[in-house]
Design a protein around this nucleic acid. Structure first.
Lengths: 341, 341
DNA sequence: TTGTAAGCGTTATCAA
DNA sequence: TTGATAACGCTTACAA
C-alpha cells in the first residue's frame, strides 16, 4: 500500500555508489563518468525514485519559495497580477506561497510569520496594510507593488504620467471642464501621483478643472449610489459644459456610463469618460470605454526580475546587498476607445 | 549583518534544557512545569527565536502544504475560487502552493511533479487537462472542482439543476422558443449536465427549444463575432417568437445584451436572457442580467473540508482510505434580475 | 517531568 | 572521479 519512499540511500545501495555520488548525479552530473551516469539513471527508473526537496532545503537552506501577500482576488488588477507573477515560474523556477490578506494588520503579520517559518527567500507584497519599514525588517528581499514603498524596493505604474495622459486626452476631446474623481489618497500611495499629474497638466494648459476627492464606498451598491449622486451634482454644476471625467478605475467608469445610458439611452456628446486599469470591464461595457491601462504583465515581470536578482545576490559568498531600495516605474498605456474623441 | 539563526540547540544551551524539552514546549507545552515553560518563553524572547518549519517537516513528514492547479485567473470563476480556497487557511491551517496551469498536459505534469517533490499532503485540481486516472495515481488525496472526476473525489455545481432552473425561468417568462447556447461538451465534463437539465425540462413541459452547440472562440473578439452571427441566425429563424436565451456564462450574456442594446437601444421585449456564474459582469452590465449562480465559497469550503478529512485520515496510525471517490454536489442559485420576467 | 540518541533526505567538506 | 562523514533543525522512541 504505502510503500516507503525511495531515497538516495536506496539508490546508493542499489548501484553500489555512495549517497554523495547520487547527489552529484543531480547537482553536477558531468562530474561522473558517462557510464556511471547511465547506471544511476537506470536505477532511478528501476526503483521509481521521486525527488524530495525537503531534505535538500534543510541541507542547503535554499527553499526556492517566494511569498505573496495580496489584498484580494476579486479585483481584476490583483488577480491578473497574481496570474502574471505565477507565470514567471517558467523563467525563474521560484514557487509561490500565496496568502490573500484580509487587510487586518495583525492577521497579515501572522501570514508573514508563517511565510518566514518556511524560509521563503523573498516576498512580493501588494497589500498596503503593513508599513514598508516593518517589511524591510523581515531580513529577506521584498518587492512592493502599488503600495507605500519608502523602505522597500518596488514596481509601480507611472501614475503621474497616467494623470498627464488622462488630462491630455480629455483636452484633445475639447472638454470645457475636466473632472477627476478619486479617493483622498495619502501622498505615500503611488496612485496619488495620478491626481498630481492631472492637476499639473490642467494648470499648465490653463484648463478649467474640478478635483473631486471622495470616498465612493466599498460595495457595488455604495459605488452606484455615490456615483449617481456625483452625476447629479455635476449636471447641476456644469449644465452647459462638455464634461471630461477621469474616473478612478474602470469599474466606476462603467457604473457612470450605465447611469448615463439609463438616463439618455446613449453616451451624450456632452460627456467624455476615461477610466483606469484597462480591466476587462472596460472592453465589455455597453460602449467600450477609454482607459489608462496598467501594464500588469510588465509590472509582474519587473517585480520578479528585481526580486530574483536580490535573492540570487544573497546566495553569493560575498553578497553585496543594495544600499538603497530600488523603485521601478512602468509607463501606463493610453487606450482610446469610444468614450473619448 | 546576517546573524545566524537561533535553533533549538541554542535555546537548549541558553536554558540548560535539552532540545527535546524545547521541542515539547512547542508541541505539548503542558508536559512541562509552568515554571519551565516561562523560562523557555523568556529565552525565546531573549534570543529572538524564529520558528523554522523545514526541520519539522523533515522529521515529521507533515508539510501542511496543499497544491493547487488552476487553469487561469482571468476568468472570475477561477480567481474567486482561488480566493475562497486561500481563505480556508484560517480554518484548516494548510498553506497553498499555487500553479496557474497553461493547459498543456506535459507542463501541468511538471507542475505536479514539482508539487509532489515538496511533499504536498493533498491537491485541489481545477484544471481539466490531466485525466483523473492519472491524478488518482499520485498517491495523495486529490479533489477536483468542475472537471472530469471519475477516479478522484470532487465538488461540483449541480449543473443539471442549473439547466432545469434556467428552462423553468424562461418558461415563466413565457418565451415562445427556449434556446440554449453552449460548447459541445463531452459527457464527462460536469457542465454538460446543464444541457441535459435544460433539454429534459423543455421536453417535460413540451416547450419548443433549440440547442445550439457551438464553439464561440477563445478571445473576446472571437466571442463577439460568434455571438453577433448567432444573433443574426436567431432573428432569421425566430422572427416573431419571444426568444428565451440561456447562454453558457455571464460574459457571453453580456456581449449579447450589448449587441441588442446597440441594435435596439434597449433589451427588446422579444428577448429574455439568462447567464451562468453570477460573476460581477452580470451585475455591472448595462442592465443587470439574470443568471444561474455558482456558490463559489460553498464549493471551495466543501472541497477543503473533503480534502482535509482525507489528509487527516492519512495521518492516523491505521488509516482507512475511502473505497470509492466521493462526489459532492452544490446546488446553484437562481438569480432573477432585469433580463427575465 | 526531562534527557539521550537516532533518525528524516539531502548537501557540503574533506580526503582519497 | 568518488567516498566518508558531518551537518541542516526538528521529532520521536525509549530511558531515566
Amino acid at each position: 500500500m504505502t510503500k516507503k519512499k525511495v531515497t538516495f540511500a536506496d539508490i546508493a545501495a542499489y548501484t553500489n555508489f555512495s549517497k554523495t555520488t547520487i547527489s552529484r548525479y543531480f547537482n553536477d552530473p558531468d562530474s561522473l563518468t558517462l557510464e556511471n551516469q547511465q547506471k544511476i539513471a537506470q536505477a532511478l527508473v528501476d526503483l521509481d525514485y521521486k525527488e524530495n526537496k525537503i531534505g535538500r532545503i534543510l541541507a542547503s537552506g535554499k527553499t526556492e519559495f517566494v511569498g505573496i501577500l495580496i489584498p484580494n482576488l476579486y479585483m481584476h488588477f490583483y488577480s491578473e497580477m497574481l496570474n502574471q507573477i505565477l507565470s514567471t515560474y517558467e523563467t525563474y523556477g521560484y514557487k509561490f506561497l500565496v496568502f490573500a490578506g484580509n487587510s487586518k494588520a495583525d492577521v497579515e503579520r501572522k501570514y508573514i510569520k508563517e511565510l518566514l517559518a518556511y524560509n521563503i527567500e523573498g516576498m512580493i507584497v501588494l497589500s498596503p496594510t503593513i508599513p514598508s519599514s516593518e517589511l524591510a525588517a523581515c531580513g529577506i528581499p521584498v518587492v512592493g507593488i502599488e503600495r507605500e514603498d519608502q523602505y522597500i524596493c518596488s514596481v509601480n505604474t507611472d501614475n503621474y504620467l497616467g494623470g498627464v495622459q488622462a488630462a491630455s486626452l480629455l483636452k484633445e476631446s475639447s472638454c470645457g471642464i475636466l473632472i477627476h474623481v478619486n479617493a483622498d489618497l495619502p501622498d505615500t500611495a503611488p496612485a496619488s501621483g495620478r491626481i498630481r499629474g492631472f492637476v499639473d497638466t490642467c494648470e499648465k494648459f490653463h484648463l478649467p478643472y474640478d478635483l473631486i476627492l471622495t470616498d465612493l464606498g466599498n460595495t457595488f451598491e455604495e459605488n452606484r449610489a455615490g456615483i449617481l449622486k456625483l452625476l447629479e451634482t455635476l449636471e447641476q454644476k456644469y449644465p452647459n459644459e462638455k464634461k471630461g471625467i477621469f474616473m478612478p478605475n474602470d469599474t466606476h467608469t462603467n457604473v457612470l456610463l450605465n447611469l448615463l445610458f439609463q438616463k439618455y439611452g446613449k453616451l451624450p456628446e456632452s460627456y467624455r469618460l476615461l477610466g483606469f486599469d484597462n480591466s476587462p470591464i472596460s472592453r465589455e461595457a455597453v460602449i467600450p470605454t477609454s482607459t489608462v491601462g496598467q501594464q500588469i504583465s510588465v509590472i509582474a515581470g519587473t517585480a520578479m526580475e528585481l526580486l530574483s536578482s536580490m535573492m540570487e545576490e544573497r546566495k553569493k559568498r560575498r553578497p553585496e546587498p543594495l544600499k538603497e531600495p530600488v523603485h521601478k516605474i512602468i509607463p501606463p498605456e493610453l487606450i482610446r476607445r469610444q468614450t473619448t474623441d
